[in-house]
């Protein structure tokens, strides 16, 4: 596909997302610092809200998205869905660490402690992060790559379903009977709400950009490895041939090697390991 397109079209196809992301991040920052009014009680510190809350929402959506992609992997067994699921969770983990750090800073500024146990959203976020921290150790403790993908998908689906459940159950817990401390997006004054929406959009785009980049790098690496394997097999094929008896009628590697390699290539493409241009 790429090769048939003219260079500008190709550039447009790959560049629109990072460019839009950069513009949106700039817009979100500008709105945060120059448009959104100072909050009456917390003052300047409250600006961290436009970073912390959108990041948290994007993180959680990313975890759930990773679970949905894992369902697609188990249904199709295609490698690319596993890669997408892995990258979604990986990105969410990185975003999630930022959420915990910004949340901590906010807590220190507002209540004087780096961590407080009176904010159910933050507490359930911590529990969810604790669970997802085991995703990579589990994944890389399984050696067979196919089984690794399958087991990681089972984890991703279970954990994806756990995300909303943990949020709900933690919120019901008796220690949160008093009203919530942090304002949510519902009852914000209009300028704050608008800034929040722009920031949420900007961080969603940032997530999407980074996700797409890493997925492409990973798939390209798989493709390279598959091609290397193909080259190796082709190089070995003439070595094996003389060992076989010429008279054997049922001898199997009988198809022309060119046919075989294109068939092999198609198979790899079906498995999502080689992207046929």
């Amino acid at each position: 596909m790429d090769s048939t397109q003219k260079p500008p079209a190709r550039l447009l196809r790959t560049a629109w997302l990072p460019v839009t992301t950069a513009l949106m991040i700039a817009a979100a920052l500008a709105l945060t610092f120059f448009y959104a009014p100072l909050e009456a009680q917390e003052g300047f510190l409250q600006k961290i809200f436009y970073l912390h809350v959108p990041l948290a929402i994007v993180t959680l959506c990313g975890f759930v998205y990773g679970g949905l992609l894992a369902i697609a992997h188990l249904r199709t067994r295609e490698v690319r869905y596993d890669v997408r699921s892995y990258v979604a969770i990986h990105m969410s983990l990185i975003f999630g660490v930022c959420v915990l750090i910004t949340g901590s800073i906010w807590a220190k500024g507002s209540w004087g402690h780096w961590w407080v146990w009176n904010e159910p959203t933050l507490d359930s976020f911590l529990i969810i992060m604790l669970l997802y921290c085991t995703y990579q150790p589990l994944r890389f403790a399984i050696e067979d790559r196919e089984r690794q993908a399958r087991y990681a998908s089972v984890f991703a689906i279970t954990a994806g379903a756990f995300v909303p459940m943990a949020m709900i159950v933690v919120r019901l817990a008796p220690q949160y009977v008093h009203p919530r401390v942090l304002s949510s997006a519902n009852n914000l004054p209009a300028p704050m709400g608008a800034t929040f929406v722009v920031a949420l959009l900007a961080f969603s785009l940032l997530y999407a950009t980074l996700w797409r980049l890493e997925v492409r790098v990973k798939l390209a690496r798989f493709r390279l490895r598959a091609l290397q394997r193909l080259a190796l097999e082709r190089a070995q094929a003439p070595l094996r041939a003389p060992l076989a008896s010429p008279g054997a009628p049922l001898l199997v590697p009988s198809t022309a090697s060119a046919d075989r390699s294109s068939g092999r290539r198609r198979q790899l493409a079906e498995r999502g390991e080689v992207i046929v241009p």
Partner: peptide, 22 residues
């Protein structure tokens, strides 16, 4: 089988020692 590839596939009567040892 040799390295996962079939080198030999036929009834036992027609197989001689050399090809087995290969």
């Amino acid at each position: 089988l040799r390295d996962g590839a079939p080198l030999l596939l036929e009834p036992p009567a027609s197989i001689d020692r050399d090809r087995l040892s290969a």
